[in-house]
Design a protein around this nucleic acid. Structure first.
Lengths: 139, 139
DNA sequence: TTCAATTGTAACTAAACTTATTACAGTATG
DNA sequence: CATACTGTAATAAGTTTAGTTACAATTGAA
């Protein structure tokens, strides 16, 4: 019944980077803000980098910064980069083909899943990192 | 990163009950259609019963039937009954209060979470069990 | 060139969660 | 009273997630 917290942590991390004002922020620093281990952060940053949302540099005075302006980072991109992308999973086992319901339900559930996931994506697309930063600043 | 399959299984189960035409369906039969253990089904039915979506009867010739017509069962009700209700989780650990971002991000994420979850609920409310049955029959 | 700082990632451990299974008490039905 | 169910506890097994240690590779600077 538990949902995944990767997305929330990713939004937190990106907000920290945005506050860094373009400077390279170290995984150690981010980890302290999120209150977790630097390796956990680096793994997350690796995903965000694959999605072209951040840029990391190795070596001394290395670190990570945003790859785009906060206004150009939609939360749907963040979600796609770090979450499984599914509000609910399809059943792990294949239904019984001999049952009239079991025979057809999988395809119906799959289509339903896509419709729901699409609506989540559209909702998340309405928010950018800038919106998040504004809310953090207002508080 | 894995989502939960309780909702999908619940929709499957309710479809089987609807196809039962008001007769009491046994957990054994449902389990065979879903391809899982009867106890797993009974636990799920217990949740659906708490939400007033089904009625179960113990004893010989016991079993479960729908508590309402398929057209009156919204998928949002099913989701609420068996899923955690959250598209993404808030971070398990409290952020660092000494960081300007960490100090305020939790509340922002919480509000964002509510907005997203609300939109999922609204989307699921657009579908009823009847819609699912129609799709199964069409296939 | 050498040293210190940092990322990237593998390997492993620990914790949490989900699913499956067994067992059996309680309750209808005939 | 015997049979056939549900409800649920207890437990085990499997899967996923988070945390930790370790270290190679890279960079920048003394």
């Amino acid at each position: 019944m538990a949902a995944n917290s990767q997305f929330a942590i990713a939004v937190h991390v990106l907000t920290v980077l945005a506050k860094g004002g373009g400077e390279r922020v170290k995984s150690d620093y981010i980890a302290q803000s999120v209150n977790t281990n630097p390796v956990v952060i680096r793994r997350l940053l690796s995903n965000l980098q694959d999605a072209n949302l951040v840029v990391s540099h190795v070596g001394a005075s290395g670190g990570t910064s945003l790859a785009k302006l906060p206004k150009d980072i939609q939360l749907s991109e963040v979600y796609k980069a770090v979450a499984c992308g599914e509000v609910f999973a399809l059943p792990p086992k294949k239904p019984n083909e001999n049952c009239p319901v079991g025979k057809n339900i999988a395809a119906v559930l799959c289509n339903l899943q896509k419709e729901i996931d699409k609506s989540v994506n559209e909702k998340l697309r309405q928010f950018t990192l800038r919106d998040v930063i504004e809310r953090v600043d207002e508080a």
